[in-house]
Simulated scan of single mutants.
Amino acid sequence: MRIGELAALLGVSTRTVRYYHHQGILPEPPRLANGYREYGMRDAVALARVRRLVALGLSLDEARDVIAEDRSRELTEILAEIDADLARQEQEIRDRRQRLAEVLRQAEAGTLGPEATASPDLLAFLKTVDLPASKAAAWDRELLELMDTVAAAPERERAFALFGTLAADPEVTARGREFYRRLDELADVEPDDPRIAPLAEMVAAYSVRHMLPDGGTAGREWGVETVEPFLEGLAPAQAQVIRQAIRLITEETGPASADPP
């Protein structure tokens, strides 16, 4: 198949495929006698792997290393690994549907909504920080309200006790507005835009410094898989910021297995 067919198969643009070639992530097939490059099944699998690795928050350099290792592996082994990953995604979708079913139940009962279900701490926080008129800020508020609706009481109380403390910090509003502005700028760009990494680093650094007051152990409970169900409301590049930020936070605070029993 030609480059356009390969791109269409994976739902990306030909510009993205060429960018991966230029970065040395995807090997570029040699030109045939007719001047065209012919792509095969292994190329399609490699492109699918790159897109999944990027979606999980890996940097392009890390994705390049994985794809380079794949060249020495059997295609059947790679496909089996992709199948296992799809099985994990399937379970995540089931879990997400279960959470959404609870929200739907509350909506049908007429009890869904921040004024009816949100804790006083959340409402006070949202009023204090006065989120700007921003699509990114609107998503953030909806996420907070959903978490407050479906979370167990202990987790909700712990989270919004922290938010109440943050609301008293004037730096929160300034930092938040800057974050939403920069996140909104990524609404219509590719998920490998060079502005993604600096913004993710800013969010991670601020979170580790100000939002993990227990010495960082709370960050060990975070994971890309945990927040993945909540990223559907964001554009691909915006979601990538959150994924990369969480990976950086996890690397900074250590894996969950490091916690004592």
Rank of each mutant, 00 (worst) to 15 (best):
R2W: 03
R2V: 01
I3Y: 00
L6N: 05
L6V: 00
T16N: 10
V17R: 02
V17G: 01
Y20L: 09
Y20K: 06
H22T: 14
H22N: 15
Q23T: 13
G24M: 07
I25S: 03
P29H: 00
P30W: 02
A33P: 06
G35S: 02
G35R: 05
E38M: 02
E38L: 06
A44Q: 08
R49K: 11
R49L: 08
V50I: 15
V50K: 04
R51T: 09
R52E: 10
S59V: 06
R64K: 15
R64W: 06
D65I: 04
A68I: 01
D70Q: 14
D70C: 08
S72M: 07
R73A: 12
R73K: 13
L75A: 07
T76H: 11
A80G: 09
I82N: 09
D83P: 03
L86F: 11
A87Y: 03
Q89K: 13
E90Y: 13
E90G: 14
E90T: 15
E92A: 15
I93M: 13
L104D: 15
R105W: 07
A107T: 09
E108W: 05
E108R: 14
A109Q: 08
G110A: 03
G110I: 00
L112N: 06
G113H: 00
P114H: 09
E115K: 08
E115F: 04
E115R: 09
L122V: 07
L123T: 10
L123Y: 08
A124R: 14
A124P: 02
F125D: 03
D130G: 07
L131M: 10
A133S: 15
S134L: 00
K135S: 14
K135G: 11
W139F: 11
R141W: 04
E142P: 00
L143F: 10
L144H: 13
L144T: 06
E145W: 03
D148T: 05
V150T: 09
A151S: 14
E155F: 11
R158I: 12
A161G: 14
L166Q: 05
A168S: 14
D169N: 11
E171K: 14
E171S: 14
R177V: 04
R181Q: 12
R182T: 07
L183F: 04
A187C: 04
A187V: 10
V189N: 08
D192L: 15
P194R: 12
I196L: 03
I196N: 04
A200V: 04
M202S: 10
A204M: 04
A204V: 00
A204S: 09
A205I: 02
R209L: 08
H210F: 13
D214R: 11
D214Q: 13
G215W: 00
T217G: 02
E221I: 09
E221L: 14
G223E: 05
P229K: 07
F230D: 06
E232K: 12
G233W: 02
A235T: 03
P236R: 07
A237Y: 02
Q240C: 11
V241E: 06
R243F: 03
R243Q: 11
A245W: 02
L248D: 05
E251P: 04
G254M: 09
A258R: 13
D259Q: 15
P260Q: 06
P261F: 13
